[in-house]
Protein backbone atom coordinates (compact mmCIF):
# COMPACT_ATOMS: atom_id res chain seq x y z
CA UNK A 1 0.00 0.00 0.00
CA UNK A 2 2.70 2.49 1.00
CA UNK A 3 5.52 0.36 2.40
CA UNK A 4 8.09 2.17 0.23
CA UNK A 5 7.57 5.39 2.23
CA UNK A 6 9.54 3.94 5.19
CA UNK A 7 12.57 3.20 2.97
CA UNK A 8 12.24 6.56 1.20
CA UNK A 9 12.26 8.35 4.59
CA UNK A 10 15.37 6.41 5.63
CA UNK A 11 16.95 7.27 2.26
CA UNK A 12 16.36 10.97 2.95
CA UNK A 13 17.95 10.73 6.42
CA UNK A 14 20.93 8.75 5.05
CA UNK A 15 21.44 11.31 2.24
CA UNK A 16 21.58 14.20 4.74
CA UNK A 17 23.88 12.21 7.09
CA UNK A 18 26.16 11.23 4.20
CA UNK A 19 26.54 14.85 3.05
CA UNK A 20 27.35 15.98 6.62
CA UNK A 21 29.90 13.19 7.21
CA UNK A 22 31.51 13.82 3.79
CA UNK A 23 32.22 17.46 4.75
CA UNK A 24 33.90 16.54 8.06
CA UNK A 25 35.76 13.42 6.95
CA UNK A 26 39.54 13.39 6.47
CA UNK A 27 41.29 11.63 3.59
CA UNK A 28 42.32 8.05 4.47
CA UNK A 29 46.00 7.20 4.88
CA UNK A 30 48.02 5.82 1.99
CA UNK A 31 48.75 2.09 2.25
CA UNK A 32 50.44 -0.59 0.15
CA UNK A 33 48.01 -3.07 -1.37
CA UNK A 34 48.56 -6.19 -3.50
CA UNK A 35 45.87 -5.88 -6.19
CA UNK A 36 46.92 -8.87 -8.28
CA UNK A 37 49.52 -11.52 -7.33
CA UNK A 38 52.97 -9.88 -7.33
CA UNK A 39 51.78 -6.30 -7.93
CA UNK A 40 51.97 -4.16 -4.77
CA UNK A 41 50.85 -0.57 -5.30
CA UNK A 42 50.19 2.50 -3.16
CA UNK A 43 46.49 3.17 -2.58
CA UNK A 44 44.09 4.56 -0.04
CA UNK A 45 40.90 3.00 1.27
CA UNK A 46 37.53 4.58 0.54
CA UNK A 47 35.91 6.89 3.09
CA UNK A 48 32.95 5.88 5.24
CA UNK A 49 30.81 8.44 3.39
CA UNK A 50 31.52 6.50 0.17
CA UNK A 51 30.19 3.37 1.84
CA UNK A 52 27.11 5.30 3.01
CA UNK A 53 26.46 6.05 -0.67
CA UNK A 54 25.89 2.30 -1.22
CA UNK A 55 23.07 2.38 1.34
CA UNK A 56 21.70 5.63 -0.08
CA UNK A 57 21.60 4.19 -3.62
CA UNK A 58 19.95 0.94 -2.50
CA UNK A 59 17.31 2.81 -0.50
CA UNK A 60 16.50 5.45 -3.15
CA UNK A 61 16.62 2.93 -6.00
CA UNK A 62 14.54 0.34 -4.16
CA UNK A 63 11.90 2.78 -2.94
CA UNK A 64 11.74 4.43 -6.40
CA UNK A 65 11.11 1.12 -8.14
CA UNK A 66 8.60 0.08 -5.47
CA UNK A 67 6.81 3.42 -5.87
CA UNK A 68 6.51 2.58 -9.59
CA UNK A 69 4.91 -0.76 -8.65
CA UNK A 70 2.42 1.08 -6.42
CA UNK A 71 1.53 3.43 -9.28
CA UNK A 72 1.04 0.33 -11.47
CA UNK A 73 -1.42 -1.13 -8.94
CA UNK A 74 -3.28 2.17 -8.58
CA UNK A 75 -2.22 2.63 -4.94
CA UNK A 76 -0.39 5.89 -5.65
CA UNK A 77 -2.30 8.60 -7.52
CA UNK A 78 -1.12 12.00 -8.84
CA UNK A 79 -3.77 13.98 -6.89
CA UNK A 80 -4.53 14.53 -3.19
CA UNK A 81 -4.29 12.47 -0.93
CA UNK A 82 -1.81 10.76 -3.34
CA UNK A 83 -2.34 7.37 -1.64
CA UNK A 84 -5.71 5.71 -2.36
CA UNK A 85 -5.57 4.01 1.06
CA UNK A 86 -5.51 7.42 2.78
CA UNK A 87 -8.99 8.28 1.51
CA UNK A 88 -10.86 6.34 4.23
CA UNK A 89 -9.96 5.50 7.87
CA UNK A 90 -10.24 1.70 7.53
CA UNK A 91 -7.80 1.57 4.59
CA UNK A 92 -5.54 4.12 6.28
CA UNK A 93 -5.26 1.89 9.37
CA UNK A 94 -4.37 -1.08 7.16
CA UNK A 95 -1.81 1.05 5.31
CA UNK A 96 -0.17 2.15 8.59
CA UNK A 97 -0.05 -1.49 9.74
CA UNK A 98 1.62 -2.49 6.47
CA UNK A 99 4.14 0.33 6.79
CA UNK A 100 5.01 -0.72 10.34
CA UNK A 101 5.49 -4.38 9.38
CA UNK A 102 6.49 -4.80 5.70
CA UNK A 103 7.92 -1.26 5.35
CA UNK A 104 10.07 -1.46 8.48
CA UNK A 105 11.13 -5.00 7.50
CA UNK A 106 12.30 -3.72 4.08
CA UNK A 107 14.30 -0.86 5.62
CA UNK A 108 15.86 -3.19 8.20
CA UNK A 109 16.86 -5.83 5.63
CA UNK A 110 18.44 -3.29 3.25
CA UNK A 111 20.31 -1.67 6.17
CA UNK A 112 21.37 -5.09 7.48
CA UNK A 113 22.70 -6.15 4.07
CA UNK A 114 24.59 -2.83 3.79
CA UNK A 115 26.08 -3.36 7.30
CA UNK A 116 27.21 -6.81 6.11
CA UNK A 117 28.78 -5.24 3.00
CA UNK A 118 30.67 -2.71 5.17
CA UNK A 119 31.94 -5.49 7.50
CA UNK A 120 33.06 -7.69 4.59
CA UNK A 121 34.76 -4.74 2.84
CA UNK A 122 36.58 -3.84 6.09
CA UNK A 123 37.82 -7.44 6.34
CA UNK A 124 38.97 -7.44 2.71
CA UNK A 125 40.81 -4.13 3.27
CA UNK A 126 42.45 -5.45 6.44
CA UNK A 127 43.55 -8.72 4.80
CA UNK A 128 44.86 -6.95 1.66
CA UNK A 129 47.00 -4.57 3.76
CA UNK A 130 48.23 -7.41 6.00
CA UNK A 131 49.22 -9.67 3.08
CA UNK A 132 51.08 -6.89 1.25
CA UNK A 133 52.98 -6.01 4.47
CA UNK A 134 54.13 -9.63 4.78
CA UNK A 135 55.37 -9.66 1.17
CA UNK A 136 57.25 -6.32 1.40
Amino acid sequence: MACFIVSATEALIVTVAQKMIEKKEKSPEEVKVEFAPGTIQSAHGIKFSEKLKWLRTMLWGGSGLLAFEHVWHGEVIPWFPFLTAASNPADAAEMLHEMSTVGVGMALLVTGVWAGMVCVSALIEKNAIASSEVKK
Partner: peptide, 16 residues
Protein backbone atom coordinates in the same frame (compact mmCIF):
# COMPACT_ATOMS: atom_id res chain seq x y z
CA UNK B 1 22.68 -1.25 -6.23
CA UNK B 2 19.30 0.12 -7.35
CA UNK B 3 18.15 -3.32 -8.49
CA UNK B 4 19.59 -5.01 -5.37
CA UNK B 5 17.74 -2.53 -3.15
CA UNK B 6 14.46 -3.23 -4.96
CA UNK B 7 15.10 -7.01 -4.89
CA UNK B 8 15.66 -6.98 -1.12
CA UNK B 9 12.47 -4.97 -0.61
CA UNK B 10 10.41 -7.34 -2.79
CA UNK B 11 11.98 -10.26 -0.93
CA UNK B 12 10.54 -8.92 2.34
CA UNK B 13 7.21 -8.43 0.58
CA UNK B 14 7.40 -12.07 -0.60
CA UNK B 15 8.10 -13.32 2.96
CA UNK B 16 5.01 -11.53 4.30
Amino acid sequence: LMFWGASLMWFVDAIF
